[in-house]
């Protein structure tokens, strides 16, 4: 799954709110330890610069949250009507 390509399909107006929702999912995920430390560090890099809603920040966030809680991630993304990304997450899960 090419996360960067998927993130490019997310409308810019949606990115801030989506990154906020996904961060909640990530912080509450029971399988947080499934997030590779390299991905976690990339995420922190963008968060420090307040760029989690940027294309690169959102890419790192999506990668992390899909590892930590794919079911809830897919549900949140579905709520935003991002069916292509939801499908990609569901396929990864299978």
């Amino acid at each position: 799954m090419e996360y960067r390509e998927l993130v490019k399909t997310i409308p810019r107006t949606m990115r801030e709110v989506l990154s906020n929702k996904l961060m909640d999912v990530l912080l509450e995920a029971k399988a947080g330890d499934a997030v590779p430390s390299s991905v976690a560090k990339t995420l922190l890099y963008y968060w420090q610069r307040d760029q989690l809603a940027s294309e690169a920040g959102l890419t790192a966030l999506l990668r992390a949250v899909v590892e930590a809680d794919p079911v809830r991630s897919a549900a949140v993304i579905g709520d935003f009507g991002l069916e292509e990304i939801k499908l990609a997450i569901s396929l990864k899960e299978e």
Binding site: M23, L27, G32, D33, V35, S37, A40, K41, L43, L44, W47, Q48, D50
Partner: peptide
Amino acid sequence: MELFWRTTYYTIQAEH
């Protein structure tokens, strides 16, 4: 008690 990146996330938030 939390994973390193969660504690660090909160500290960045606090600094902001």
